[in-house]
Design a protein around this nucleic acid. Structure first.
Lengths: 200, 200
DNA sequence: CTAACTTTGTGAAGTATTTCACAAGCCACC
DNA sequence: GGTGGCTTGTGAAATACTTCACAAAGTTAG
């Protein structure tokens, strides 16, 4: 989140930013900002604040965004399409090296700049190209099956959009986005008149 | 998350579930499960566990899922399409009452069961129909503008898929899903050999 | 160069959350 | 109906996180 705002400030040509300013932008407190950043190092100048451009570089480094990450998208449905078209990925160093589906009417068809591959080739392709990250955009029923194949092929991280509960071994990172669950969180907030979650 | 697993167990016909079992499923601890649930009431039976069916009903009540929530989708692009097609929303009591876009080539065209409406009508429709929730699936540049209009029209919660930082007044609940940021989280986990986030 | 002002970095204090551990309750079996 | 084996609910302890508050360090102005 800090990186997002710092990039914005950098684009606007701002040279430094105080913890107070960052806190205000991010909806947190100055002390929180300082503690968070101090965990990774001592980036600021007393009396002046944090050097915007330098700090963005540091954070990118910390997040591992200096390198390019190969990513496969599994599932050429609507969500897969939304993801494949999303320019933000490329911009941030995530290179989509393949889109996979098991629908014969989709395989071989063009898909943005890429072509839809047969899911049967998924495992071997990942293994050969050493792709570390997969984005899962397939129906729930197949999710765990596909995950197991991905894990077997050596995937190291999975971003899951299927509304299914899936499990992975400890050495694989898993992050699930469940849109229905997000809406349910809002339902809870509305039902209980909770205050806003603020920006995120 | 508990609700998800409980529903699964319920479908499978399981009558009761212990905190130990739920903890194992959810990747947490039995004590955590008991503390979490005890916050809302005393649902379990000692020596037996929690009554699966009853507890799902309780959780649905707590989350405000007994009623139907009207939802508008703003943006008839790929993400909007993925959301509109997603059966999970309807199943869980979220009724999509309208899809809006400002692209003249899309307005009036059918969109699943609905028709794409002109974004110019958005505010008045929300006000008239008293729609409490909006899902934002539009380009970042327009996001804050549209949010302001939604807020002005009396919206009470927003689920934002635009990769933009938006702000809302305190009485409005906001939840943002930023796919690039999710991937960056995985990048950090990979770069720093963090253990899995587990299921979610 | 000095003085007044700003802002970081960080121990210490204060909160919040998670885990422990165990009494109390419930079931099942004899 | 009593006994043994589970499992909850919950204070207390342990851990984690956030906020406070201030010395140290840098900046600006004169």
């Amino acid at each position: 989140m800090y990186l997002r705002y710092l990039e914005e400030l950098d684009t606007q040509g701002q040279k430094t930013a105080s913890s107070d300013e960052l806190a205000h932008l991010c909806g947190t407190t100055p002390a929180q900002v300082r503690k968070d950043l101090s965990f990774f190092g001592s980036f600021g100048k007393r009396g002046l604040g944090y050097p915007v451009h330098e700090l963005t570089a540091h954070l990118r480094q910390i997040l591992g965004l200096e390198r390019e990450w190969k990513v496969v998208i599994v599932g050429a449905g609507k969500i897969g399409a939304a993801l494949a078209n999303y320019r933000g990925f490329r911009q941030r160093g995530f290179k989509i090296v393949g889109v996979y589906d098991n629908d014969p009417t989709k395989i071989g068809k063009p898909w943005g700049e890429a072509i839809v591959h047969d899911m049967a080739d998924l495992a071997q392709d990942i293994q050969r190209e050493e792709v570390p990250i997969a984005v899962l955009a397939i129906p729930s029923d197949d999710a765990q099956d596909v995950v197991d194949r991905l894990v077997g092929a050596g995937i190291r991280a999975i971003l899951n959009f299927a509304p299914a509960q899936i499990t992975v071994p400890p050495h694989v990172s898993l992050k699930s986005v469940n849109m229905a669950m997000e809406l349910e969180g809002l339902s809870f907030a509305l039902t209980n008149s909770l205050p806003s979650q603020g920006a995120a």
